[in-house]
Structure formats: structure tokens, C-alpha cells
């Protein structure tokens, strides 16, 4: 066998393997663009989990009753756990967790836009657990099929834990929906506020750019943004209605022919503004993360110093 394989041959062989459904592992040859896309994508996903601790975490001190308090701590803890798993998956591609965290704190990395919205009521905890995590699971179920092995493996465990998130969220929402008028108003208000932000989670309509086509071809993603969003809408709409709650979209209707719900697209200009830093909570989210990171620096330094001392 000739060891002087050309770059073109390598690319062709890579694409052939991926098309057959074979997984790519960290030590494999891969196109630079594949590596970069995955580092960016997994990094953003990890950042989303870590920043995503904040909107719900805010309610931990106020959670009503032992069961809700315990559940919420466990849920927000899982998000730290998911961030941990995802940073590790990205690290196998050659970028350290510290580098990724520093990019996040410097405002150079993106995370899910949905976490830039505020959580003014207790019902937001339920609606995030149910709607946001449902939208996330539809995306993540797709990502279990991603061609990059470590990402696919992380997704399996994450999806399992997300099913706990969705169930506890549903349980919270259902309890409020059947509760006092005040509780019901609280939960309807939360659905009204979160509906469009959750629709935005799967990203703007695909323009089928070269970039998207390549992601699909390399099986980084296996579905378009529109497909993922439609799946989420089809799943969640009947469930919300079954609880006697309404969705803030007058044009929402079931299309018998296509067997899908048709819905009003969210305001994509708003998404652009939020992603680019002008959402209601962007500044605060990053400021809080930065402060926690700075406050913890002496601990990390001390642990590292002690390690050296022990090793010496």
C-alpha cells in the first residue's frame, strides 16, 4: 500500500466512510473544516449547558416544597454535568476546556439564544424544563446519529437525563395548570413568553448554504433546522392544548394533508439581535459567569499548586 496518500484521496475516503454511517473518532484523519465545525458546535453546545444553569438556577432558593427544590437542584446539576461531558467531547479534537471557557467569558463564543431571556416567574422553571428541553431533545436525538463518535456518545447519556428534565417540567406545568387561578395565570404567562424563543432554538430556516449542505453530507447534522423545528411543534402543540393552555399563535393549525402543524415563524430579526448580544439578559449572564470564574480562580490555582507539591 502506498503511504503517500493525497489529500484528495483522504477526503474521498473520509466522505465514503461517513456516508456509509461509519463513525469518526478523535485520532482519525478528518478534514480541517470538519474538525473546526465540530469544535465550534460542541463548544457552543457545552456553553449553552453552563449558561443554561443560570435562568433556572435562580429559582433554587425559592422552590416551593422539598420535592420541587430537590428536583430543581438535580436538574440544574445535570446541566453542569452535560457541559462537563460536552467540553470533554470537544477536547478530544484538540482544544482545551480552559480555552473554550475563556472564549465564552470573553464574549467570543456563542451559546443557545434561549438562555438570554429572563425567568421572572416560578412557572418559567416548568416551561423551560418541558418546552426548552423538549426542543433540545429533538435536536439531540438527531445528534445521537452524528458522525463524530465522542459527540454521539455524549448525546446518548444526555438524552437519557433530558427525559427526566422534560418529565419534571411537564409535571410542574400540569400541576400549575390544574391549580388555583393565580397558578394557572402564572403558567399561561410563561407559555406565552417562551413559545417563540423555543421556536428559535433550532435556528433560522435553512438557506441550504454550502455550509449546511456540507454539515449534512458529513453527517455532523442529519436533519435541517426546519425539520427539527417541525418535529418539536408537532410533539408539543397537542400536549400543551391537552392541559387547557393556549399557544400565542392564532394561525396555528393542523394540516390534515401533510399531517403537520403549521405555525407562524418567529421574528428572525429578534434572533439576530439576541445572538449578537442584544437580548434582555446577555450582559447579565456573562457577567455572572465571569464573576463565578474569577471568584473560583484561587481555588483552582491552589489545587493545582498542591498537586505539584505532592508530585514533587
Amino acid at each position: 500500500m502506498n503511504s503517500q496518500v493525497t489529500a484528495e484521496d483522504q477526503l474521498a475516503r473520509f466522505e465514503e466512510r461517513v456516508a456509509r454511517g461509519e463513525k469518526v473518532e478523535p485520532g482519525d484523519w478528518m478534514p480541517d473544516e470538519y474538525r473546526k465545525s465540530l469544535i465550534r458546535m460542541i463548544g457552543q453546545h457545552a456553553h449553552s449547558e453552563i449558561v443554561g444553569q443560570l435562568p433556572e438556577g435562580k429559582w433554587i432558593p425559592y422552590a416551593p416544597g422539598f420535592r420541587r427544590k430537590l428536583t430543581l437542584i438535580a436538574k440544574v446539576q445535570d446541566e453542569a454535568g452535560h457541559g462537563q461531558l460536552l467540553y470533554r467531547a470537544a477536547e478530544t479534537l484538540g482544544k482545551s476546556r480552559e480555552e473554550m471557557l475563556e472564549e465564552l467569558l470573553a464574549g467570543k463564543a456563542k451559546y443557545a439564544n434561549v438562555f438570554n431571556y429572563p425567568t421572572p416567574s416560578w412557572a418559567d422553571v416548568g416551561v423551560i424544563g418541558w418546552l426548552v428541553d423538549m426542543a433540545a431533545v429533538v435536536n439531540q436525538t438527531m445528534l445521537q446519529q452524528t458522525s463524530f463518535g465522542p459527540y454521539a456518545r455524549a448525546m446518548k447519556r444526555i438524552c437519557y437525563e433530558e427525559s427526566f428534565h422534560i418529565k419534571q417540567g411537564y409535571d410542574l406545568v400540569a400541576t400549575l395548570a390544574k391549580g388555583t387561578p393565580e397558578q394557572k395565570a402564572m403558567v399561561q404567562g410563561a407559555i406565552d413568553r417562551w413559545w417563540y424563543p423555543t421556536l428559535m432554538m433550532s435556528g433560522p430556516p435553512d438557506n441550504l448554504s454550502a455550509h449546511t449542505l456540507q454539515s449534512l453530507k458529513w453527517r455532523i447534522k442529519t436533519k435541517t433546522n426546519e425539520q427539527v423545528r417541525q418535529e418539536y411543534v408537532d410533539l408539543i402543540v397537542p400536549q400543551i392544548r391537552a392541559l387547557g393552555l393556549t399557544i400565542p399563535d392564532r394561525d396555528l393549525k393542523y394540516d390534515e394533508k401533510s399531517e403537520h402543524w403549521s405555525y407562524t415563524q418567529p421574528d428572525w430579526e429578534e434572533l439576530k439581535r439576541v445572538v449578537n448580544g442584544d437580548g434582555p439578559m446577555n450582559k447579565e449572564r456573562l457577567a455572572v459567569r465571569r464573576k463565578a470564574h474569577e471568584d473560583g480562580r484561587w481555588v483552582r490555582e491552589a489545587l493545582a499548586a498542591k498537586r505539584k507539591e505532592v508530585a514533587a
Binding site: 461531558l85 470533554r88 476546556r97 480552559e98 471557557l101 455524549a154 480562580r297 489545587l303
Partner: peptide
């Protein structure tokens, strides 16, 4: 630049008699 600790690969055994399986780091 901040501290980057070493990473440790983690192997998990569900019950005695089972193999240890790599689960992350």
C-alpha cells in the same frame, strides 16, 4: 491563562462480574 488540570479517564463497573466500561473523563 487559567489552570488546566490533568484529565482522568473514568471507567465504571455497574455490578461485580461486569467489565469496567469507559464513560468519560
Amino acid at each position: 491563562s487559567d489552570t488546566q488540570f490533568d484529565t482522568y479517564e473514568v471507567f465504571h463497573q455497574k455490578k461485580k462480574g461486569d467489565p469496567h466500561i469507559h464513560v468519560g473523563a
